[in-house]
Simulated scan of single mutants.
Amino acid sequence: MDPESEGPHSVKVTPVQQVLASCTGAVLTSLMGKCFVYSNGLMDHMCVCCEETGSKAWYKKPGNFQGTLDAFLKIIRNEGIKSLWSGLPPTLVMAVPATVIYFTCYDQLSAVLRSKLGENETRIPIIAGIMARFGAVTVISPLELIRTKMQSKKFSYKELHQFVSKKVSEDGWISLWKGWAPTILRDVPFSAIYWYNYEILKKWFCEKSGIYEPSFMINFTSGALSGSFAAVVTLPFDVVKTQKQTQLWTYESHKISGPLHMSTWVIMKNIVAKNGFSGLFTGLIPRLVKIAPACAIMISTYEFGKAFFQRQN
């Protein structure tokens, strides 16, 4: 057998090619994932969830929604199917650079760790996943603040520049990283769990199928399963992040001050006291509906892109 085709790491993919593969995956995931955006009940996207008349209502969207499917159908009926992709530019502003940094760093770190620790070291996906996500969240955190503003109010770019300048002059540069801690608490464990399970599942499916290189469907399935498991485990931190952002929008929209500096643990204790332990897992199904296909599309597209460049190389 040709030694160049004996293993998945024998033909190198350059960092630039990894960037191109991850960029393609980010754009596709954003385009495919926007259809879940109004109905997932999460603050990271286009909807702001607030309590009105005893049921959840989505900010600036007509009517009250009883659930994911109900929101999905009502938005299409009232605003047309194109509205499911409204607000795509702010999402791409966040998704593309975050994904490029994250996936490229993960692969580069994995390659370095394999050379130091050996190809079969099981800790590599965990270490690389933690370090890559930590770096990506830190770099992208100011962009998330900007995207949040673009979504909550229709700012022009001039108004956006004025907002950022005012915030920096009043609260300092560190204010651009507001929300960094709860994001880290959610995303870093998610990354470690996701990559560890993804690599294990991919290897297991390959062994069961009797093939050496994972197929597109193996990558797709492994991504969906590992993403789902990580989403369940880290959901409490997502609920906390949602609560913080809901408070922020509520206080800003009513121009009142409020306890915006409550710690993650205090918010968790309040949720448990009010709704029980199950309150930390509010919105599990909508989160899975969003994350499972997003993880599957992203990783399978990324791996497909890398395989394409490997053949070219």
Rank of each mutant, 00 (worst) to 15 (best):
T68N: 07
K274N: 10
W265R: 05
F103R: 03
V239K: 12
L20R: 07
T242W: 10
Q245Y: 09
I101K: 00
R123A: 14
L201P: 03
W265Q: 08
S5I: 12
K244Y: 00
R147M: 15
P125D: 08
G7E: 06
A307V: 00
K158S: 01
S39M: 09
G305H: 03
M131F: 05
L160E: 04
W85H: 09
G179K: 00
S39Y: 05
V188H: 04
T148M: 10
G25P: 01
D187K: 01
N197I: 11
R77I: 07
G179S: 02
F134I: 01
V272C: 11
T264K: 11
S55W: 05
A230D: 03
V27P: 04
I256P: 01
W249L: 13
D187N: 03
K12S: 14
H45K: 06
H261V: 07
F190A: 13
E213I: 13
L145Y: 04
T221S: 11
V233Q: 03
S39T: 07
G283M: 08
T242M: 05
W177L: 02
E119F: 10
L248I: 00
K290E: 11
C47L: 06
F155C: 09
V48R: 09
A111E: 14
Q66A: 11
T24C: 13
P15A: 11
F237G: 11
E207T: 09
G80W: 03
D171F: 13
D171C: 08
L73V: 14
M1R: 12
E79Q: 14
A192P: 00
C50Q: 07
L88E: 10
L185Q: 03
A307D: 14
F205A: 14
S278N: 03
K269R: 10
T29K: 00
A57K: 13
K116Q: 11
E207A: 12
S222E: 05
H254K: 14
G210R: 08
S39K: 03
P259G: 05
N120Q: 08
A95S: 14
T53L: 06
W58K: 06
W85Q: 11
L69R: 06
E79D: 13
L84R: 06
F304G: 03
F163Q: 00
G7Q: 02
M1K: 11
R77C: 07
I271Q: 10
A71L: 02
R114G: 05
T264V: 15
V93C: 08
R77G: 06
W265L: 09
Y157M: 13
C35D: 08
I291M: 04
E144C: 10
I285V: 15
G80E: 03
P125Q: 09
H261Y: 11
I126C: 08
K154W: 08
A95F: 10
I75K: 06
K34S: 15
